[in-house]
Simulated scan of single mutants.
Amino acid sequence: MKILQSISLVALAASFVSAEPTLVKRANPLGIDISNWQGSVNFNTVKANGLAFVYIKATEGTTFIDSTFSEHYIGATNAGLIRGAYHFAHPDSSSGATQANYFLAHGGGWSSDGITLPGALDIEYNPNGATCYGLSASAMVTWIRDFSNTYHSRTGVYPVIYTTTDWWKTCTGNSAAFASTNPLWIARYASSIGTLPAGWTFTTFWQYADSGPNPGDQDLFNGDLAGLKRYSLLLLAIVLPKI
């Protein structure tokens, strides 16, 4: 395990993703991300529609556990989807470490079973206050590092970071501190992915629409289905074939 952990997750991911993904004729697996707002989801229908993965909201801050998380997680698993959990960050309410541990205690873990995606940190615009949660850029970077390092110390892998380029530039000063460790999940509702935050030369996931033919937000994995399956295994798949 120590040898495996010495290999950067992002370096591995780089071998099967490209810098500028677009919705073209490639085998990019489609997915969704959902929460209690979607209610019950027929995952068999989702799978039949050709989707391969789903990210499911587990927690928010340290006071909210998504009421549909277990139902969604079990349903996705039974339908044969690759699935993972995400945490909506509230950097103004408690430390990154505290929220990482809360996330891990309520469904945010990772295991090398080939069907579990690494947990994702959803860090974006504050729905109820200051855009940057009252933190300076340096304080925000410290908060994210605290969450990321805590998650890594507990699971052996770094969390995916979900954000927008605009928020990242505004609230972290466009920090490049996480590009060598954390996979990027970018949100941009357009026909192309656009400029990425500093340091990242590619994104692992792209949330390209907030609605579509399937429940929740619409996502794209930057690779093929075999690559997505290898990605769920993370550092267990050292030798990656070229795609």
Rank of each mutant, 00 (worst) to 15 (best):
L12F: 00
N222A: 06
W200F: 05
W185R: 09
L23M: 12
E60Q: 15
G61F: 12
I82M: 03
F205E: 11
I115E: 00
G61T: 09
T45A: 14
D146S: 09
I186R: 12
V160K: 03
G199S: 05
T203A: 15
F178R: 05
V41H: 04
W143N: 04
P213W: 10
N214K: 01
L234Y: 05
G107M: 04
A11Y: 02
S211R: 12
R230S: 10
P183W: 06
Y208D: 07
L81M: 01
G107N: 03
S153K: 10
I186K: 13
A14T: 03
S67I: 15
N42F: 07
P183E: 04
G39E: 09
I186E: 11
P21I: 08
A187K: 13
S153Y: 02
C132L: 12
A85V: 01
V157H: 02
T98M: 08
L228T: 01
T77A: 15
N222T: 05
P241V: 14
G39K: 11
Y86S: 06
W167C: 14
I56A: 13
L51R: 09
G80D: 08
P159E: 09
T155N: 02
S95C: 06
E20W: 07
W206P: 06
N214L: 07
L23R: 12
N101T: 05
